[in-house]
Write a protein that binds this DNA or RNA. Structure first.
Lengths: 187, 187
DNA sequence: TCACTCATGTAATTGGTTACATGATTAG
DNA sequence: CTAATCATGTAACCAATTACATGAGTGA
């Protein structure tokens, strides 16, 4: 799991806003997204949790189960929420990689409505740009790549198209929600 | 660019089977796939090329251009092809991440027809499994994630669906090609 | 009893990013 | 003349994987 603009610590912190979790259960949760996000090793996960604890961004509680080994359940602190909030708001940079975007999506709760829309819109534009780039490469194969990489380009194009559709749909839904809210406030 | 089962060196080696390239032009090529694959830094690219050179898997030639700085163009050697071939054939492991798969696709030339089909089929099964997992998670939201991550799951599902369709189409095309070949041999 | 899941951790090594350093050419 | 593109490289730092180490309970 490489950093990119997405620091692993902050990501974990974000997951903990949803509910307290142990290192092991974080790993299991991430397993569901391994396809897009990759799976972190315990060798990175546990030290990250220790670091967060050390900075007072989380607290631990040892929970004993019958018929299972005890687990250390981590909860985010007030300070943790603060730090996450600051981190979540600032970047707005060109975080191009799919992985980073999905990780951000997983933390969607920590954005306000407008922030989320802004993120999605930004992403839409990025993917749209990539999409046209790919299309151009596919239709006008330069001497440097004749048949080569055609497969990968084609696959990338298919995914970009699907991603774009999804983003458009979501953005429509979200702006509809805004309109409904406004109607309610008027009526 | 993290390793995964996809070593960066082998990946470069694979790109060089398509045509000789300089470090800089490799970076540019990869730029087109940055969305899916991320972009490597020169700090990893150049040392990787030096290492390949050191192992006699590639050769260099300094090419001077008018009105441009000279570039070092690397070509794969016989030994390089050998090593790549061995590496490309063995793994067959569960390389779950999207990034690894796309990188593999970019090296598709280095598979024979059957090898490619095998890779795609394997991938298809993996994605199909992920797809059903995600569907299950979306439809039966466990207490642990109510609305949270719904967005990410939804997005993942959309991409998985698109990926699955693409794989099915490609596999159909490839098996059709096989049938055509057999017909030709008969007739 | 053997293997697997649950559950935590540390240490060595690898490998990548970031920042630094250089330098020519071209377009505004 | 300044910024950007082309083009290569090194060194310090940081982060992640891998391998190791432990241990209890469960199901075959």
């Amino acid at each position: 799991m490489s950093a990119g603009s997405m620091s692993f610590r902050h990501f974990i912190l974000g997951l903990l806003t949803q509910q307290p979790m142990s290192g092991y259960s974080i790993k299991c949760t991430l397993e569901n997204f391994s396809w897009l996000v990759g799976k972190p090793s315990f060798g990175s996960l546990y030290p990250a949790l220790h670091a967060l604890l050390n900075d007072n961004l989380v607290t631990v509680e040892v929970v004993t189960h019958e018929s299972k080994p005890p687990s250390k359940v981590y909860s985010i602190t007030q300070r943790g929420r603060q730090v996450l909030k600051e981190w979540v708001q600032q970047p707005a940079g060109t975080s191009t990689s799919l992985k980073d975007f999905v990780m951000r999506l997983m933390l969607a709760d920590n954005f306000d409505h407008d922030g989320l829309i802004a993120q999605l819109r930004q992403r839409r534009d990025q993917v749209a740009a990539h999409h046209t780039d790919l299309e151009h490469l596919v239709t006008t194969p330069s001497d440097s790549q004749k048949l080569q990489q055609q497969l990968a380009l084609d696959y990338g194009l298919a995914l970009a198209t699907a991603g774009l559709n999804w983003l458009d749909r979501k953005l429509d839904q979200l702006s509809e929600q805004v309109l409904l809210m406004e109607d309610l406030q008027k009526g």
